Computed example of a mutant assay.
Amino acid sequence: MIEQERLPDIRTTAQAWESLFRAQVAVMRRLQALPEFRKLSVREYDVLFNLTRCPGGWTRLNELNENLLISQPSLSRMVDRLEAKGLVLRRTAEQDQRGIEISLTEAGRELQRRIGREHVRHLHELIAPALSAEEFGQLQALTEKLRSGLSPGC
């Protein structure tokens, strides 16, 4: 946590946030237009990508939702569509019969890998010219510090 006397003023905080947000919007608009996102939307791909990071292969719907910028009802409808496409499986949670867990199917895992390879290549082509390797390291360190500085539930 930053010491109280080192806190930035409110205007500096707002301007930095606005800049970060606008940079993300600019990048995301360019990414959404890429050919790899014709089969799946960026948001659908994000669900598949986050499922690849689940240690046991299965995760509760509400836990998955913590990593996404989408409402719980919207995520539920999206999972319905992904399940209909054969990309995810759904089951009743083993620990709590009221909850739902989801996992990638083999087809979902393969599609995520295929899109992911193209996505990373296009992302690199898009943003690598903007910053040096050192600046990308600083950006990563700063965004990780920002995320870890948020209290749980934010």
Rank of each mutant, 00 (worst) to 15 (best):
I2D: 07
Q4M: 09
L7N: 07
P8R: 15
I10N: 09
W17N: 08
L20Q: 07
L20F: 12
R22V: 11
R22Y: 12
A23W: 11
A23S: 14
Q24A: 13
Q24H: 13
V25P: 01
A26F: 08
V27W: 03
R29F: 06
R30P: 00
R30W: 00
A33N: 10
A33W: 02
L34F: 06
E36C: 09
E36A: 08
F37C: 04
R38W: 04
L40Q: 02
E44D: 14
E44R: 06
Y45A: 04
D46E: 15
V47G: 05
V47H: 02
N50Y: 14
N50I: 05
L51R: 03
L51Q: 02
T52C: 11
T52I: 03
R53V: 03
R53S: 10
C54N: 01
G56L: 12
G56F: 10
W58R: 07
L61N: 09
N62E: 12
N65Y: 00
E66Q: 15
L68H: 03
I70Y: 01
S71G: 10
P73L: 05
S76F: 05
R77Q: 10
M78G: 01
V79D: 00
D80I: 03
D80T: 13
R81Q: 09
R81Y: 03
E83G: 10
A84D: 12
K85Q: 12
L87P: 02
V88S: 00
V88W: 00
V88D: 00
R91H: 07
T92A: 08
A93K: 01
E94N: 10
E94I: 12
D96N: 14
Q97I: 01
I100Y: 02
I102L: 14
S103P: 02
S103L: 04
T105P: 04
T105E: 03
E106K: 11
I115E: 02
R117E: 15
H119D: 05
H119P: 00
L123Y: 14
I127C: 02
P129K: 01
F136Y: 12
G137L: 06
Q138T: 10
Q138N: 09
A141M: 07
L142P: 00
T143Q: 11
K145N: 09
G149C: 05
L150P: 01
S151N: 07
C154Q: 13
